[in-house]
Design a binder for these strands. Sequence first.
DNA 1: CGCCTTTTTGATAGCCGTCAAATTTCGTGG
DNA 2: CCACGAAATTTGACGGCTATCAAAAAGGCG
Lengths: 250, 250
Amino acid sequence: MLPESFLPTNLDVAQLRSSCATCSLRELCLPVGLNDQEVDILGEVVSYKRKVKRGSYLHRTGTKFQALYAVKSGFLKTCILEEDGRQQVTGFHMTGELLGLDAISTELHTCDAIALEDSEVCEIPFAKLEEISRTIPSLMHHFHKIMSREIVRDHGVMMLLGSMKAEERLATFLLNMSRRLAIRGYSESNFNLRMTREEIGSYLGLKLETVSRAFSKLQDEAVISVNNKHIQIHDLQRLKTKMGNSSCAT
Amino acid sequence: MLPESFLPTNLDVAQLRSSCATCSLRELCLPVGLNDQEVDILGEVVSYKRKVKRGSYLHRTGTKFQALYAVKSGFLKTCILEEDGRQQVTGFHMTGELLGLDAISTELHTCDAIALEDSEVCEIPFAKLEEISRTIPSLMHHFHKIMSREIVRDHGVMMLLGSMKAEERLATFLLNMSRRLAIRGYSESNFNLRMTREEIGSYLGLKLETVSRAFSKLQDEAVISVNNKHIQIHDLQRLKTKMGNSSCAT
DNA sequence: CGCCTTTTTGATAGCCGTCAAATTTCGTGG
DNA sequence: CCACGAAATTTGACGGCTATCAAAAAGGCG
Protein backbone atom coordinates (compact mmCIF):
# COMPACT_ATOMS: atom_id res chain seq x y z
CA MET A 1 0.00 0.00 0.00
CA LEU A 2 1.14 3.51 -0.67
CA PRO A 3 1.76 5.91 2.22
CA GLU A 4 -0.92 8.49 2.76
CA SER A 5 1.05 11.24 1.15
CA PHE A 6 0.78 9.35 -2.11
CA LEU A 7 -2.98 9.16 -2.05
CA PRO A 8 -4.58 10.90 -4.97
CA THR A 9 -5.15 14.63 -4.77
CA ASN A 10 -8.69 15.94 -4.90
CA LEU A 11 -8.40 16.35 -8.59
CA ASP A 12 -7.30 12.77 -8.97
CA VAL A 13 -10.13 11.59 -6.77
CA ALA A 14 -12.58 13.43 -8.95
CA GLN A 15 -11.08 11.75 -11.97
CA LEU A 16 -11.28 8.36 -10.35
CA ARG A 17 -14.85 8.71 -9.25
CA SER A 18 -15.93 9.85 -12.63
CA SER A 19 -13.75 7.44 -14.54
CA CYS A 20 -16.66 6.31 -16.67
CA ALA A 21 -17.87 9.89 -17.10
CA THR A 22 -14.61 11.07 -18.59
CA CYS A 23 -13.71 7.87 -20.37
CA SER A 24 -13.32 8.22 -24.09
CA LEU A 25 -15.10 4.92 -24.50
CA ARG A 26 -18.25 6.07 -22.80
CA GLU A 27 -20.23 5.85 -25.99
CA LEU A 28 -18.95 2.38 -26.82
CA CYS A 29 -19.07 0.71 -23.47
CA LEU A 30 -21.47 -0.02 -20.66
CA PRO A 31 -22.57 3.60 -20.02
CA VAL A 32 -24.31 3.98 -23.38
CA GLY A 33 -27.58 5.79 -22.91
CA LEU A 34 -27.01 6.81 -19.31
CA ASN A 35 -27.28 10.39 -18.10
CA ASP A 36 -24.42 12.04 -16.22
CA GLN A 37 -25.75 11.19 -12.79
CA GLU A 38 -26.20 7.54 -13.68
CA VAL A 39 -22.72 7.37 -15.18
CA ASP A 40 -21.36 8.67 -11.89
CA ILE A 41 -23.07 5.87 -9.99
CA LEU A 42 -21.66 3.35 -12.44
CA GLY A 43 -18.28 4.99 -12.15
CA GLU A 44 -18.19 4.29 -8.44
CA VAL A 45 -18.84 0.63 -9.03
CA VAL A 46 -16.15 0.48 -11.69
CA SER A 47 -13.31 1.76 -9.56
CA TYR A 48 -10.56 -0.76 -10.24
CA LYS A 49 -8.46 -0.98 -13.31
CA ARG A 50 -6.18 -3.84 -14.09
CA LYS A 51 -3.19 -3.92 -16.35
CA VAL A 52 -2.66 -7.10 -18.32
CA LYS A 53 0.71 -7.55 -19.93
CA ARG A 54 0.89 -9.01 -23.38
CA GLY A 55 0.73 -12.79 -23.20
CA SER A 56 -0.63 -12.93 -19.69
CA TYR A 57 -4.04 -14.03 -18.53
CA LEU A 58 -6.88 -11.77 -17.50
CA HIS A 59 -8.71 -14.84 -16.26
CA ARG A 60 -8.46 -18.59 -16.59
CA THR A 61 -10.98 -21.32 -17.22
CA GLY A 62 -12.42 -22.72 -14.04
CA THR A 63 -11.58 -19.80 -11.77
CA LYS A 64 -14.27 -18.08 -9.79
CA PHE A 65 -16.22 -15.36 -11.52
CA GLN A 66 -16.65 -12.11 -9.68
CA ALA A 67 -16.40 -9.32 -12.17
CA LEU A 68 -16.92 -8.47 -15.78
CA TYR A 69 -14.12 -6.64 -17.52
CA ALA A 70 -14.40 -3.76 -19.93
CA VAL A 71 -11.45 -3.33 -22.24
CA LYS A 72 -10.06 0.18 -21.71
CA SER A 73 -7.03 -0.21 -23.94
CA GLY A 74 -5.32 -3.00 -25.77
CA PHE A 75 -6.53 -6.20 -27.36
CA LEU A 76 -7.38 -9.62 -25.98
CA LYS A 77 -8.51 -13.04 -27.12
CA THR A 78 -10.75 -15.53 -25.37
CA CYS A 79 -10.36 -19.23 -25.97
CA ILE A 80 -11.62 -22.53 -24.70
CA LEU A 81 -9.61 -25.71 -24.73
CA GLU A 82 -10.81 -29.28 -24.53
CA GLU A 83 -9.25 -32.03 -22.45
CA ASP A 84 -7.67 -33.44 -25.57
CA GLY A 85 -5.76 -30.25 -26.22
CA ARG A 86 -7.88 -28.81 -28.97
CA GLN A 87 -8.19 -25.09 -28.66
CA GLN A 88 -10.82 -22.76 -30.02
CA VAL A 89 -10.52 -19.00 -30.04
CA THR A 90 -14.03 -17.76 -29.30
CA GLY A 91 -13.40 -14.08 -29.75
CA PHE A 92 -11.08 -11.10 -30.14
CA HIS A 93 -11.85 -8.14 -27.97
CA MET A 94 -11.18 -4.46 -28.54
CA THR A 95 -11.69 -1.33 -26.48
CA GLY A 96 -15.14 -0.83 -25.05
CA GLU A 97 -16.07 -4.49 -25.25
CA LEU A 98 -17.12 -6.57 -22.26
CA LEU A 99 -15.47 -9.82 -21.20
CA GLY A 100 -16.75 -12.46 -18.81
CA LEU A 101 -20.36 -12.74 -19.93
CA ASP A 102 -19.99 -16.49 -20.32
CA ALA A 103 -19.07 -16.89 -16.67
CA ILE A 104 -22.32 -15.57 -15.25
CA SER A 105 -24.09 -18.87 -15.84
CA THR A 106 -21.94 -21.06 -13.63
CA GLU A 107 -20.00 -18.42 -11.71
CA LEU A 108 -16.89 -20.00 -13.11
CA HIS A 109 -14.99 -18.71 -16.09
CA THR A 110 -15.57 -21.00 -19.06
CA CYS A 111 -12.69 -19.65 -21.08
CA ASP A 112 -9.24 -18.15 -20.86
CA ALA A 113 -8.80 -14.47 -21.60
CA ILE A 114 -5.31 -13.58 -22.77
CA ALA A 115 -3.92 -10.18 -23.71
CA LEU A 116 -2.50 -10.03 -27.23
CA GLU A 117 -0.93 -6.68 -26.43
CA ASP A 118 -0.39 -4.75 -23.22
CA SER A 119 -3.90 -3.96 -22.13
CA GLU A 120 -5.89 -2.26 -19.45
CA VAL A 121 -9.32 -3.36 -18.28
CA CYS A 122 -11.91 -1.90 -15.93
CA GLU A 123 -13.17 -4.34 -13.36
CA ILE A 124 -16.94 -4.38 -12.96
CA PRO A 125 -18.01 -6.37 -9.89
CA PHE A 126 -21.00 -8.22 -11.21
CA ALA A 127 -23.04 -8.32 -8.01
CA LYS A 128 -22.75 -4.56 -7.74
CA LEU A 129 -23.68 -4.11 -11.37
CA GLU A 130 -26.87 -6.09 -10.82
CA GLU A 131 -27.55 -4.09 -7.71
CA ILE A 132 -27.30 -0.65 -9.27
CA SER A 133 -29.06 -1.78 -12.41
CA ARG A 134 -32.16 -2.22 -10.25
CA THR A 135 -32.25 1.53 -9.80
CA ILE A 136 -31.01 2.42 -13.29
CA PRO A 137 -33.37 0.73 -15.73
CA SER A 138 -31.53 2.06 -18.73
CA LEU A 139 -28.34 0.45 -17.46
CA MET A 140 -30.07 -2.88 -17.02
CA HIS A 141 -31.59 -2.61 -20.44
CA HIS A 142 -28.33 -1.74 -22.10
CA PHE A 143 -26.61 -4.59 -20.34
CA HIS A 144 -29.21 -6.95 -21.73
CA LYS A 145 -28.57 -5.54 -25.17
CA ILE A 146 -24.88 -6.20 -24.79
CA MET A 147 -25.47 -9.82 -23.82
CA SER A 148 -27.91 -10.21 -26.65
CA ARG A 149 -25.44 -8.70 -29.08
CA GLU A 150 -22.90 -11.29 -28.02
CA ILE A 151 -25.42 -14.02 -28.80
CA VAL A 152 -26.06 -12.51 -32.23
CA ARG A 153 -22.34 -12.30 -32.85
CA ASP A 154 -21.91 -15.95 -31.92
CA HIS A 155 -24.70 -16.93 -34.29
CA GLY A 156 -22.86 -15.07 -37.02
CA VAL A 157 -19.72 -17.05 -36.27
CA MET A 158 -21.74 -20.26 -36.35
CA MET A 159 -22.98 -19.30 -39.78
CA LEU A 160 -19.43 -18.57 -40.86
CA LEU A 161 -18.06 -21.84 -39.51
CA GLY A 162 -20.99 -23.85 -40.76
CA SER A 163 -21.26 -22.73 -44.32
CA MET A 164 -18.38 -20.61 -45.57
CA LYS A 165 -15.24 -21.54 -47.44
CA ALA A 166 -11.81 -20.47 -46.27
CA GLU A 167 -11.55 -17.33 -48.40
CA GLU A 168 -15.05 -16.21 -47.42
CA ARG A 169 -14.24 -16.70 -43.77
CA LEU A 170 -11.12 -14.61 -43.98
CA ALA A 171 -12.89 -11.87 -45.93
CA THR A 172 -15.63 -11.79 -43.31
CA PHE A 173 -13.05 -11.65 -40.57
CA LEU A 174 -11.12 -8.79 -42.17
CA LEU A 175 -14.26 -6.77 -42.78
CA ASN A 176 -15.32 -7.31 -39.20
CA MET A 177 -11.97 -6.07 -37.93
CA SER A 178 -12.13 -3.16 -40.35
CA ARG A 179 -15.57 -2.09 -39.18
CA ARG A 180 -14.74 -2.35 -35.49
CA LEU A 181 -11.56 -0.33 -35.97
CA ALA A 182 -13.43 2.30 -37.95
CA ILE A 183 -15.96 2.69 -35.14
CA ARG A 184 -13.06 3.44 -32.83
CA GLY A 185 -11.67 6.12 -35.09
CA TYR A 186 -8.91 4.08 -36.74
CA SER A 187 -8.41 3.49 -40.41
CA GLU A 188 -10.76 0.95 -41.87
CA SER A 189 -8.36 0.02 -44.63
CA ASN A 190 -4.97 0.09 -42.98
CA PHE A 191 -4.26 -1.72 -39.75
CA ASN A 192 -2.12 -4.17 -37.89
CA LEU A 193 -3.45 -7.48 -36.74
CA ARG A 194 -2.55 -8.40 -33.18
CA MET A 195 -3.05 -12.12 -33.48
CA THR A 196 -1.10 -14.86 -35.21
CA ARG A 197 -2.23 -16.84 -38.23
CA GLU A 198 -2.83 -19.74 -35.91
CA GLU A 199 -5.16 -17.69 -33.73
CA ILE A 200 -7.05 -16.42 -36.75
CA GLY A 201 -7.29 -19.99 -37.96
CA SER A 202 -8.60 -21.23 -34.65
CA TYR A 203 -11.25 -18.53 -34.66
CA LEU A 204 -12.22 -19.29 -38.25
CA GLY A 205 -12.06 -23.06 -38.01
CA LEU A 206 -9.06 -23.26 -40.33
CA LYS A 207 -5.45 -24.36 -40.07
CA LEU A 208 -2.82 -21.65 -40.05
CA GLU A 209 -1.49 -22.73 -43.46
CA THR A 210 -4.93 -22.32 -44.94
CA VAL A 211 -5.20 -18.85 -43.46
CA SER A 212 -1.85 -17.95 -44.93
CA ARG A 213 -2.87 -19.23 -48.34
CA ALA A 214 -6.13 -17.30 -48.20
CA PHE A 215 -4.19 -14.13 -47.39
CA SER A 216 -1.88 -14.77 -50.32
CA LYS A 217 -4.80 -15.37 -52.65
CA LEU A 218 -6.51 -12.12 -51.68
CA GLN A 219 -3.22 -10.36 -52.20
CA ASP A 220 -2.69 -11.95 -55.61
CA GLU A 221 -6.12 -10.66 -56.57
CA ALA A 222 -5.03 -7.18 -55.45
CA VAL A 223 -7.90 -6.92 -53.00
CA ILE A 224 -5.55 -6.48 -50.06
CA SER A 225 -1.87 -6.17 -49.28
CA VAL A 226 -0.38 -8.36 -46.60
CA ASN A 227 2.90 -7.65 -44.92
CA ASN A 228 3.09 -10.05 -42.08
CA LYS A 229 0.64 -8.58 -39.58
CA HIS A 230 0.07 -5.36 -41.49
CA ILE A 231 -3.04 -5.35 -43.64
CA GLN A 232 -4.06 -2.86 -46.25
CA ILE A 233 -7.44 -3.18 -47.86
CA HIS A 234 -7.34 -1.84 -51.41
CA ASP A 235 -10.85 -2.66 -52.47
CA LEU A 236 -13.41 -2.81 -49.68
CA GLN A 237 -16.27 -3.41 -52.09
CA ARG A 238 -14.61 -6.36 -53.71
CA LEU A 239 -13.69 -7.76 -50.33
CA LYS A 240 -17.36 -7.59 -49.38
CA THR A 241 -18.33 -9.59 -52.43
CA LYS A 242 -15.94 -12.29 -51.22
CA MET A 243 -18.03 -12.76 -48.11
CA GLY A 244 -21.04 -14.43 -49.59
CA ASN A 245 -20.88 -15.71 -53.12
CA SER A 246 -19.84 -19.29 -52.89
CA SER A 247 -23.07 -20.96 -53.86
CA CYS A 248 -25.00 -18.16 -55.49
CA ALA A 249 -26.28 -20.17 -58.35
CA THR A 250 -28.41 -22.53 -56.33
CA MET B 1 -62.60 -9.45 -27.12
CA LEU B 2 -64.77 -12.02 -25.43
CA PRO B 3 -68.04 -10.98 -23.79
CA GLU B 4 -67.92 -10.86 -20.03
CA SER B 5 -69.81 -14.07 -19.62
CA PHE B 6 -66.90 -15.85 -21.24
CA LEU B 7 -64.34 -14.55 -18.83
CA PRO B 8 -62.64 -17.28 -16.86
CA THR B 9 -64.29 -18.54 -13.69
CA ASN B 10 -62.55 -17.94 -10.42
CA LEU B 11 -60.95 -21.31 -10.59
CA ASP B 12 -59.70 -20.64 -14.08
CA VAL B 13 -58.46 -17.24 -13.05
CA ALA B 14 -56.51 -18.83 -10.26
CA GLN B 15 -54.99 -21.28 -12.70
CA LEU B 16 -54.15 -18.56 -15.13
CA ARG B 17 -52.63 -16.26 -12.58
CA SER B 18 -50.50 -19.04 -11.23
CA SER B 19 -49.65 -20.53 -14.56
CA CYS B 20 -45.96 -20.46 -13.77
CA ALA B 21 -46.61 -21.68 -10.24
CA THR B 22 -48.32 -24.84 -11.36
CA CYS B 23 -46.31 -25.38 -14.51
CA SER B 24 -44.43 -28.63 -14.61
CA LEU B 25 -41.50 -26.79 -16.13
CA ARG B 26 -41.10 -24.44 -13.21
CA GLU B 27 -37.75 -25.95 -12.31
CA LEU B 28 -36.44 -25.80 -15.85
CA CYS B 29 -37.65 -22.43 -16.96
CA LEU B 30 -37.49 -18.81 -15.95
CA PRO B 31 -38.90 -19.22 -12.39
CA VAL B 32 -35.90 -21.23 -11.15
CA GLY B 33 -34.93 -20.06 -7.70
CA LEU B 34 -38.00 -17.91 -7.12
CA ASN B 35 -40.25 -18.26 -4.08
CA ASP B 36 -43.99 -18.76 -4.48
CA GLN B 37 -44.86 -15.12 -4.20
CA GLU B 38 -42.30 -14.13 -6.83
CA VAL B 39 -43.53 -16.88 -9.14
CA ASP B 40 -47.02 -15.43 -8.84
CA ILE B 41 -45.78 -12.02 -9.92
CA LEU B 42 -43.99 -13.58 -12.87
CA GLY B 43 -47.11 -15.59 -13.66
CA GLU B 44 -49.09 -12.41 -14.11
CA VAL B 45 -46.62 -11.13 -16.64
CA VAL B 46 -46.63 -14.43 -18.51
CA SER B 47 -50.33 -14.56 -19.19
CA TYR B 48 -50.48 -15.39 -22.86
CA LYS B 49 -49.82 -18.68 -24.46
CA ARG B 50 -49.47 -19.24 -28.13
CA LYS B 51 -49.92 -22.40 -30.12
CA VAL B 52 -47.57 -22.92 -33.03
CA LYS B 53 -48.49 -25.60 -35.51
CA ARG B 54 -45.80 -27.80 -36.91
CA GLY B 55 -44.05 -26.05 -39.77
CA SER B 56 -45.30 -22.59 -38.92
CA TYR B 57 -43.35 -19.64 -37.62
CA LEU B 58 -43.23 -18.41 -34.06
CA HIS B 59 -41.40 -15.34 -35.31
CA ARG B 60 -39.59 -14.22 -38.42
CA THR B 61 -36.33 -12.43 -39.05
CA GLY B 62 -36.73 -8.69 -39.13
CA THR B 63 -40.03 -8.47 -37.27
CA LYS B 64 -40.33 -6.35 -34.17
CA PHE B 65 -39.30 -7.90 -30.91
CA GLN B 66 -41.69 -7.54 -28.03
CA ALA B 67 -41.61 -10.74 -26.06
CA LEU B 68 -39.46 -13.70 -25.21
CA TYR B 69 -41.02 -17.11 -25.57
CA ALA B 70 -40.70 -20.05 -23.22
CA VAL B 71 -41.36 -23.41 -24.78
CA LYS B 72 -44.19 -25.05 -22.87
CA SER B 73 -44.56 -28.06 -25.12
CA GLY B 74 -43.22 -29.17 -28.44
CA PHE B 75 -39.99 -28.58 -30.26
CA LEU B 76 -38.70 -25.72 -32.38
CA LYS B 77 -35.69 -24.71 -34.42
CA THR B 78 -34.19 -21.29 -34.93
CA CYS B 79 -32.33 -20.44 -38.10
CA ILE B 80 -30.77 -17.53 -39.88
CA LEU B 81 -30.53 -17.20 -43.62
CA GLU B 82 -28.22 -15.05 -45.68
CA GLU B 83 -29.19 -13.03 -48.71
CA ASP B 84 -27.61 -15.66 -50.92
CA GLY B 85 -29.94 -18.34 -49.61
CA ARG B 86 -27.57 -20.10 -47.27
CA GLN B 87 -29.31 -21.22 -44.14
CA GLN B 88 -27.89 -22.00 -40.73
CA VAL B 89 -29.84 -23.67 -37.97
CA THR B 90 -28.64 -21.95 -34.81
CA GLY B 91 -30.49 -24.09 -32.31
CA PHE B 92 -33.09 -26.68 -31.43
CA HIS B 93 -35.33 -25.78 -28.52
CA MET B 94 -37.11 -28.03 -26.06
CA THR B 95 -39.54 -27.43 -23.22
CA GLY B 96 -38.45 -24.91 -20.64
CA GLU B 97 -36.02 -23.15 -22.97
CA LEU B 98 -36.23 -19.47 -23.84
CA LEU B 99 -36.40 -18.09 -27.36
CA GLY B 100 -35.84 -14.56 -28.57
CA LEU B 101 -32.72 -13.62 -26.60
CA ASP B 102 -30.96 -12.61 -29.80
CA ALA B 103 -33.62 -10.00 -30.55
CA ILE B 104 -33.03 -7.89 -27.46
CA SER B 105 -30.01 -6.20 -28.99
CA THR B 106 -31.72 -4.57 -31.96
CA GLU B 107 -35.36 -5.05 -30.98
CA LEU B 108 -35.74 -6.96 -34.21
CA HIS B 109 -35.69 -10.70 -34.46
CA THR B 110 -32.44 -11.85 -36.04
CA CYS B 111 -33.65 -15.35 -36.82
CA ASP B 112 -36.68 -17.38 -37.76
CA ALA B 113 -38.23 -19.66 -35.16
CA ILE B 114 -40.14 -22.56 -36.65
CA ALA B 115 -42.02 -25.33 -34.86
CA LEU B 116 -40.82 -28.82 -35.74
CA GLU B 117 -43.87 -30.28 -34.06
CA ASP B 118 -47.09 -28.77 -32.76
CA SER B 119 -45.90 -26.59 -29.93
CA GLU B 120 -47.07 -24.23 -27.26
CA VAL B 121 -45.11 -21.27 -25.97
CA CYS B 122 -45.59 -18.79 -23.14
CA GLU B 123 -45.25 -15.20 -24.18
CA ILE B 124 -43.09 -13.10 -21.88
CA PRO B 125 -43.38 -9.39 -22.67
CA PHE B 126 -39.80 -8.28 -22.33
CA ALA B 127 -40.43 -4.77 -21.05
CA LYS B 128 -42.54 -6.20 -18.26
CA LEU B 129 -39.93 -8.80 -17.45
CA GLU B 130 -37.31 -6.08 -17.03
CA GLU B 131 -39.74 -4.10 -14.94
CA ILE B 132 -40.54 -6.83 -12.43
CA SER B 133 -36.96 -8.04 -12.35
CA ARG B 134 -36.10 -4.70 -10.71
CA THR B 135 -38.08 -5.80 -7.68
CA ILE B 136 -37.13 -9.49 -7.88
CA PRO B 137 -33.34 -9.64 -7.86
CA SER B 138 -33.28 -13.41 -8.04
CA LEU B 139 -35.34 -13.26 -11.22
CA MET B 140 -32.97 -10.75 -12.76
CA HIS B 141 -30.01 -12.86 -11.74
CA HIS B 142 -31.48 -16.03 -13.12
CA PHE B 143 -32.32 -14.31 -16.36
CA HIS B 144 -28.71 -13.22 -16.66
CA LYS B 145 -27.66 -16.81 -16.06
CA ILE B 146 -29.93 -17.97 -18.86
CA MET B 147 -28.46 -15.47 -21.30
CA SER B 148 -24.98 -16.41 -20.21
CA ARG B 149 -25.75 -20.09 -20.65
CA GLU B 150 -26.82 -19.38 -24.20
CA ILE B 151 -23.46 -17.73 -24.83
CA VAL B 152 -21.65 -20.73 -23.37
CA ARG B 153 -23.73 -23.05 -25.52
CA ASP B 154 -22.88 -21.05 -28.62
CA HIS B 155 -19.20 -21.21 -27.77
CA GLY B 156 -19.54 -24.97 -27.53
CA VAL B 157 -21.06 -25.05 -30.99
CA MET B 158 -18.25 -22.86 -32.28
CA MET B 159 -15.78 -25.39 -30.89
CA LEU B 160 -17.71 -28.18 -32.55
CA LEU B 161 -17.89 -26.44 -35.91
CA GLY B 162 -14.32 -25.24 -35.71
CA SER B 163 -12.48 -28.38 -34.82
CA MET B 164 -14.52 -31.56 -34.97
CA LYS B 165 -14.93 -34.13 -37.70
CA ALA B 166 -18.33 -35.24 -38.94
CA GLU B 167 -18.63 -38.29 -36.71
CA GLU B 168 -17.54 -36.35 -33.63
CA ARG B 169 -20.07 -33.65 -34.38
CA LEU B 170 -22.89 -36.12 -34.68
CA ALA B 171 -21.87 -37.94 -31.50
CA THR B 172 -21.77 -34.62 -29.64
CA PHE B 173 -25.16 -33.72 -31.02
CA LEU B 174 -26.74 -37.04 -30.02
CA LEU B 175 -25.31 -36.87 -26.52
CA ASN B 176 -26.60 -33.33 -26.16
CA MET B 177 -30.08 -34.41 -27.19
CA SER B 178 -29.86 -37.41 -24.89
CA ARG B 179 -28.89 -35.30 -21.89
CA ARG B 180 -31.56 -32.70 -22.46
CA LEU B 181 -34.23 -35.36 -22.86
CA ALA B 182 -33.05 -37.10 -19.70
CA ILE B 183 -33.35 -33.86 -17.73
CA ARG B 184 -36.97 -33.71 -18.84
CA GLY B 185 -37.71 -37.23 -17.68
CA TYR B 186 -37.48 -38.98 -21.03
CA SER B 187 -35.26 -41.87 -21.94
CA GLU B 188 -31.68 -40.91 -22.56
CA SER B 189 -31.07 -43.83 -24.87
CA ASN B 190 -34.26 -44.13 -26.84
CA PHE B 191 -35.86 -41.21 -28.58
CA ASN B 192 -37.23 -39.75 -31.76
CA LEU B 193 -35.55 -36.89 -33.51
CA ARG B 194 -37.89 -34.15 -34.65
CA MET B 195 -35.66 -32.64 -37.29
CA THR B 196 -34.54 -33.83 -40.72
CA ARG B 197 -31.02 -34.87 -41.68
CA GLU B 198 -30.74 -31.59 -43.52
CA GLU B 199 -31.56 -29.61 -40.38
CA ILE B 200 -29.10 -31.62 -38.33
CA GLY B 201 -26.54 -31.01 -41.03
CA SER B 202 -27.16 -27.29 -41.09
CA TYR B 203 -26.73 -27.14 -37.33
CA LEU B 204 -23.55 -29.21 -37.46
CA GLY B 205 -22.04 -27.58 -40.53
CA LEU B 206 -22.40 -30.73 -42.63
CA LYS B 207 -24.35 -31.76 -45.69
CA LEU B 208 -27.28 -34.07 -45.17
CA GLU B 209 -25.54 -36.94 -46.95
CA THR B 210 -22.62 -36.67 -44.57
CA VAL B 211 -25.00 -36.76 -41.61
CA SER B 212 -26.64 -39.86 -43.02
CA ARG B 213 -23.27 -41.54 -43.53
CA ALA B 214 -22.19 -40.69 -40.01
CA PHE B 215 -25.40 -42.23 -38.67
CA SER B 216 -24.76 -45.37 -40.70
CA LYS B 217 -21.19 -45.58 -39.47
CA LEU B 218 -22.22 -45.34 -35.82
CA GLN B 219 -24.80 -48.00 -36.48
CA ASP B 220 -22.30 -50.30 -38.19
CA GLU B 221 -20.14 -49.96 -35.10
CA ALA B 222 -23.14 -51.00 -32.98
CA VAL B 223 -22.97 -47.82 -30.93
CA ILE B 224 -26.47 -46.78 -31.92
CA SER B 225 -29.42 -48.02 -33.92
CA VAL B 226 -30.98 -45.73 -36.44
CA ASN B 227 -34.43 -46.24 -37.86
CA ASN B 228 -35.19 -43.12 -39.77
CA LYS B 229 -35.86 -40.60 -37.00
CA HIS B 230 -35.82 -43.13 -34.18
CA ILE B 231 -32.52 -43.36 -32.33
CA GLN B 232 -31.46 -45.96 -29.84
CA ILE B 233 -28.16 -45.51 -28.07
CA HIS B 234 -26.66 -48.88 -27.21
CA ASP B 235 -23.39 -47.73 -25.73
CA LEU B 236 -23.43 -44.28 -24.18
CA GLN B 237 -19.84 -44.60 -22.99
CA ARG B 238 -18.51 -45.46 -26.38
CA LEU B 239 -20.54 -42.67 -27.92
CA LYS B 240 -18.89 -40.28 -25.50
CA THR B 241 -15.44 -41.41 -26.58
CA LYS B 242 -16.45 -40.49 -30.14
CA MET B 243 -16.83 -36.88 -29.11
CA GLY B 244 -13.22 -35.98 -28.65
CA ASN B 245 -10.54 -38.30 -29.92
CA SER B 246 -9.69 -37.16 -33.39
CA SER B 247 -6.26 -35.73 -32.79
CA CYS B 248 -5.29 -37.27 -29.49
CA ALA B 249 -1.82 -38.24 -30.50
CA THR B 250 -0.51 -34.76 -30.93
C1' DC C 1 -53.25 -45.37 -52.42
C1' DG C 2 -50.21 -42.13 -54.77
C1' DC C 3 -47.21 -38.40 -54.82
C1' DC C 4 -43.73 -35.87 -52.64
C1' DT C 5 -40.33 -35.57 -49.24
C1' DT C 6 -36.79 -37.72 -46.85
C1' DT C 7 -33.16 -40.93 -46.44
C1' DT C 8 -29.62 -43.97 -47.93
C1' DT C 9 -25.80 -45.33 -50.66
C1' DG C 10 -22.37 -45.01 -54.40
C1' DA C 11 -18.96 -42.60 -57.38
C1' DT C 12 -16.26 -38.70 -58.08
C1' DA C 13 -14.14 -34.22 -57.31
C1' DG C 14 -12.38 -30.49 -54.70
C1' DC C 15 -11.16 -28.10 -50.64
C1' DC C 16 -8.58 -28.14 -46.84
C1' DG C 17 -5.54 -30.65 -43.52
C1' DT C 18 -1.13 -32.67 -42.95
C1' DC C 19 3.72 -32.93 -43.42
C1' DA C 20 7.83 -30.65 -44.71
C1' DA C 21 11.21 -27.13 -45.54
C1' DA C 22 12.72 -22.53 -46.41
C1' DT C 23 12.33 -17.79 -45.08
C1' DT C 24 11.18 -13.96 -42.32
C1' DT C 25 10.17 -11.81 -38.05
C1' DC C 26 10.57 -11.05 -33.32
C1' DG C 27 12.25 -11.22 -28.56
C1' DT C 28 16.04 -11.53 -25.62
C1' DG C 29 20.44 -10.85 -23.96
C1' DG C 30 24.98 -9.51 -24.81
C1' DC D 1 22.74 -1.59 -31.38
C1' DC D 2 23.58 -6.05 -32.89
C1' DA D 3 23.35 -11.05 -32.87
C1' DC D 4 21.37 -15.19 -31.97
C1' DG D 5 17.68 -18.51 -31.47
C1' DA D 6 12.91 -19.30 -31.23
C1' DA D 7 8.58 -18.38 -33.17
C1' DA D 8 5.80 -17.18 -37.02
C1' DT D 9 4.92 -17.16 -41.87
C1' DT D 10 4.98 -18.78 -46.49
C1' DT D 11 4.90 -22.17 -50.02
C1' DG D 12 4.79 -26.84 -52.04
C1' DA D 13 3.31 -31.72 -52.41
C1' DC D 14 0.14 -35.01 -51.16
C1' DG D 15 -3.76 -37.33 -48.95
C1' DG D 16 -8.16 -37.54 -46.65
C1' DC D 17 -12.53 -35.87 -45.51
C1' DT D 18 -16.52 -34.03 -46.98
C1' DA D 19 -19.26 -31.84 -50.79
C1' DT D 20 -21.40 -32.76 -54.95
C1' DC D 21 -24.03 -35.30 -58.22
C1' DA D 22 -26.97 -39.12 -58.97
C1' DA D 23 -30.27 -42.70 -58.29
C1' DA D 24 -32.90 -45.80 -55.70
C1' DA D 25 -35.53 -46.90 -51.62
C1' DA D 26 -38.28 -45.73 -47.73
C1' DG D 27 -41.49 -42.96 -45.31
C1' DG D 28 -45.27 -39.65 -44.63
C1' DC D 29 -49.21 -36.87 -45.67
C1' DG D 30 -53.41 -35.78 -48.04
